[in-house]
Design a protein around this nucleic acid. Structure first.
Lengths: 155, 155
DNA sequence: CTAATAGTTAGAGTGTACGCTAACTCAAGC
DNA sequence: GCTTGAGTTAGCGTACACTCTAACTATTAG
């Protein structure tokens, strides 16, 4: 089974522009052509494209991916180099997840803070917009704003 | 305590170019100036800048961040809108982490696969480069390559 | 046979987020 | 008062990853 560039675009969500661009950039030297010059993607090609997408989505630049593809085309002599690339990328994703979790802690705090602020009607009543994500949120009742909640039948 | 743009650059790791760029783009309308026009960052400013960095690093575009900053400058009337922005970004980071974990599973599989391939000396001996991350890696011993491990004293 | 559809290349254009330079001003130390 | 270093704006340049156009060719349905 083979696929045209349009079918691959549909399957992967990448545009045909992007697929041709990747090909031009040397990311897909393995894709064969019909006698008239059209690209014919195999299932193996799609698997490899999936790997390329994985590398790209985890922050690898296209130039680095091209380098990896070149190594892969050279066969078994580059096995160790490729293993090291995967190990490196594995570590990179670990770091990314750790960073994302830190950002998430901050956002969690902000959600708690602004939920309290919405409740109080004002930021001023909510204690400490500080960097400690575990800090309890406290509302100063004396600063609470009596909010005229707009209602559908309010006039 | 206030900080010059150079001190802020050192503290945050952002370049002075970037800080001025952010200011021009309306991301820091809260930073005051000395009579001669120099920026004076307060500790509160640094906290807010930290939040901006958090939003940017979690994928929010500068134009969206500017919108958020504009809302923040408008005060309590935009509390709910800002809460919703944080909730949305919180969800976005959850999704990012989930995606990163999927990518990581793939990379973990690749590391196991190429570790086996390095051991066997050839990719051909290793079973199924398939998409199942839990698949056990098997080496076909009949295809194993006797590798002449280069030694320091090998000649 | 023809029209519609989908493919091809070369190359120009776009959006985002900076990075850098030029020309200038300001503040502090000697 | 003069040098040094750090600040200022305006605006041009750049890297990356697309995105699209033009001009053309090939395949397929009727």
């Amino acid at each position: 089974m083979t696929y045209s560039i349009g079918q691959v675009a549909e399957k992967t969500g990448l545009s045909t522009y992007t697929l041709r661009y990747y090909d031009r950039e040397g990311l897909m030297p393995f894709v064969k052509r019909t006698p008239s010059g059209r690209r014919e993607f195999t299932d193996d090609n799609l698997d490899f494209l999936d790997l390329i997408t994985c590398l790209k989505d985890t922050g690898m630049q296209l130039s680095e991916i091209r380098h990896f593809v070149e190594l892969a085309m050279q066969g078994d002599s580059t096995l160790e180099t490729r293993l090291n690339i995967f190990k490196q990328q594995q570590q990179a994703v670990h770091d990314q997840i750790a960073q994302a979790k830190q950002h998430l802690a901050k956002l969690d705090y902000k959600v708690r803070f602004f939920t309290a602020a919405c409740d109080a009607g004002t930021e001023a009543a909510v204690s400490g917009d500080c960097e400690l994500p575990g800090q309890p949120i406290v509302i100063d009742e004396s600063l609470r704003v009596k909010k005229a909640h707009p209602r559908l039948n309010s006039f």
